[in-house]
Write a protein that binds this DNA or RNA. Structure first.
Length: 604
RNA sequence: CGGGGAGUGGCUCAGCCUGGUAGAGCACCUGGUUCGGGACCAGGGGGUCGGAGGUUCAAAUCCUCUCUCCCCGACCA
């Protein structure tokens, strides 16, 4: 039996000033964690117990579909050079040298490692499929760690990797993970949504994120309340309503108009008395193209000018932009660069008379036009001349581009993009909300098996590349998300499945021997029933024990106090702060019943 | 990396502008009184004021450099 008096649970009355988000404050105040450096934390006994419970659930579910490995956290450079990611990962990768000067890195993900294992061990289609997983510490030198355990530089991840003989096999492995993740998050008591996601640096064709809505989250999700469509804002699309075009003036061809001082979209719209939707906005970027890696004859990283054009009321989504042009980084142009590439000042940039590069990221200017401009007519845009705009501008007729692509973020209130099987548009309007990512599954494809040369023989004896998937779960993020979604002024409550203890027995006055013994007996009884029980046997006033109990995330509390004289105790449910008097003899059974109900809900 | 803020006992902060004996509350230790929602009284311990250099008779305070942490923007579990 665990006694509060013996455990190290350093609760704080006040949160350190550094903490801003709820989970960060409460993790510190409840004695779950302590900070060691930016994005580096000590996990204290209570935090560790909770994380261990999460890990146990993850392991139990993953064992149903895969096999557990434990791969090293310190990795040789060579494998990463082979895949090309030694350079791609950039500064996010912790790098070090050994005593011989050989270069190593700390593992931030393990595709290279499992692929190296696969290529040396897998020989035949008969060995496929394989699903390999591990639960292990990852290291990522985040540019900006933040919000307690939400974004850190060292964290635990369940990562798994699937190898299949063909796409149908990958589909199956992917679906297995999809289903397994849903079980895991449900058992952890999370209310989550699965959304379409961008594949990012991982590469690959399809991916889905598992998100928990919370204002502390860093991701934006667009979702439709009608049909259930949900996607990361970096991926989400919408159906735009048709617009009334402006009536052409004069001969209907582009006309130069003096617009002194009208640099902002709002100014231009007001000047022409038009909606911002009829203005063409320009955002000019410098985009970074990474070298393709030493193995492929390696080139230097290079910067390229990219001009993007979209509706005045739309925002560029840089993730979409990077994906469209095949760049890995982008920043907006400086004034000198605007002069160099467009010979115009900010506020008056326009697409007319530019000379678009044929291929993205060539020597000249890459011009990317958002799809929403396709088919539009008689718009207003900058004239690439200070204090002048053009009107009657029609995309395609008056200017050309390198690339026409979806590069904008959808706005809340736009129409849901879903089209039913009967061809009818969904009637829903998109809503945008913040969320934290707790899991991510990818169809990787052949990226690693190809670059690293993994081959097996198929049933015809022909050499083929296995196809891969990769799948991650952030262990600490499950805890963080749970706290974010279940807290109040006094603390937080966790689902019984992941709480450090299921129930705390608070003896209101330990100086009273009879009371203390009653508490001891009750705690033993609860333990006999298989519950994880913590006995608060500290020589503290009742108020202190109640405050602490409310703070630390334990879902049930039993007060052993005055009423013990009449054979009763109080059972307090933390989530609702509701309390019922229960006969001492029935407490254990009742708590067990409540926990079982809760767990069954988790299974459903 | 760019922009903003902060480093003073374990925690929250005051003191800095205007240089002159380092403070408060909470926490901790001892004794006593208390004992169902973070008790009270008395006594006590604990800080080279992030670090280095400089100005000065004298620096927490002024100047320079530096380190660390937090927040806002580009990455991801």
């Amino acid at each position: 039996m665990h006694r509060w008096s013996k455990l190290f649970i350093p609760t704080l009355r006040e949160a350190p000033a550094d903490a801003e988000v709820a989970s960060h404050k409460f993790l510190l105040r409840s004695g779950y964690i302590r900070q060691l450096g930016a994005g580096i934390y000590n996990y204290l006994p209570l935090g560790q117990r909770s994380l261990n419970k999460i890990i146990a659930i993850v392991r139990e579910e993953m064992d149903k579909i895969g096999q557990e490995f434990y791969l090293p956290g310190i990795l040789p450079k060579e494998l990463w050079v082979e895949s090309g990611r030694w350079s791609v990962m950039g500064e996010n990768m912790f790098r070090l040298k050994d005593r011989k000067g050989a270069e190593l890195c700390l593992g931030m993900t393990h595709e290279e490692i499992v692929t190296s294992m696969a290529r040396s061990e897998l020989r035949s289609y008969k060995q496929l499929p394989q699903i390999w997983y591990q639960i292990q510490t990852k290291f990522r030198d985040e540019p900006r760690p933040k919000a307690g355990l939400l974004r850190v530089r060292q964290f635990m991840m369940k990562d798994s990797y699937s190898f299949d003989i063909n796409m149908a096999g990958l589909d199956k492995s992917y679906d297995l993970h999809d289903a397994t993740y849903r079980h895991i998050f449900t058992r952890c008591g999370l209310k989550f949504v699965a959304v379409e996601a961008d594949s990012g640096a991982m590469g690959g064709s399809r991916s889905q994120e598992f998100m928990v809505y919370t204002d502390a989250g860093e991701d934006l999700i667009a979702s439709c309340p009608v049909c259930g469509y949900a996607a990361n804002l970096d991926k989400a699309v919408s159906r735009l309503e048709p617009l009334d075009e402006m009536v052409a003036t004069g001969g209907g061809m582009p006309e130069l108009v003096a617009t002194p001082g009208c640099a902002a979209i709002a100014d231009v719209a007001a000047f022409f008395k038009i909606s911002p939707a009829s203005d063409i906005k320009c955002v000019a970027y410098m985009a970074l193209k990474r070298g393709t890696g030493a193995k492929k004859g390696g080139t230097e990283d290079t910067w390229h000018g990219v001009a993007t054009f979209l509706r005045g009321d739309h925002q560029v989504n840089e993730i979409k932009l990077l994906g469209a042009i095949g760049a890995s980084e982008a920043r907006t142009m400086q004034a000198e660069e605007l002069t160099q590439y467009m010979n115009a000042p900010a506020g008056y940039l326009g697409p007319v008379a530019l000379d678009p590069e044929k291929n993205p990221l060539g020597e000249g200017l890459t011009v990317v036009v958002d799809k929403s401009l396709e088919g539009r007519r008689n718009m207003v845009c900058g004239a690439n001349k200070l204090d002048y705009h053009l009107r009657n501008v029609t995309p395609g007729r008056d200017f050309d581009w390198t690339l026409l692509a979806d590069i904008r973020s959808v706005n809340e209130g736009e129409a849901c993009p879903t089209v039913g099987e009967n061809g009818v548009n969904c009637s829903g309007k998109l809503v945008v909300g913040k969320a934290v990512e707790v899991g991510h599954i990818f169809k990787l494809g052949y990226k690693y098996t190809e670059s690293m040369g993994a081959r097996v023989l198929d049933e015809n004896g022909k050499e083929v590349m296995p196809i891969m998937g990769c799948y991650g779960i952030g262990i600490e993020r499950i805890l963080t998300a749970a706290i974010e979604s279940s807290n109040d002024a006094n603390g937080f409550w966790l689902p019984a499945s992941i709480a450090p203890f299921t129930v705390v027995v608070s003896v209101t006055n330990t100086a009273d021997t009879a009371l203390r013994e009653t508490g001891e007996r009750l705690a033993e009884e609860l333990e006999t029933e298989g519950l994880d029980v913590l006995l608060d046997d500290r020589d503290e006033r009742a108020g202190v024990k109640f405050k602490d109990a409310d703070l630390v995330g334990i879902p049930y509390r039993i007060n052993v106090g005055k009423k013990a004289a009449t054979g009763q105790a109080e059972l307090v449910t933390r989530q609702t702060s509701s309390s019922v008097d229960v006969a001492l003899s029935e407490v254990a059974v009742l708590v067990k019943e409540k926990v079982r109900e809760e767990l069954l809900l988790g299974e459903a």
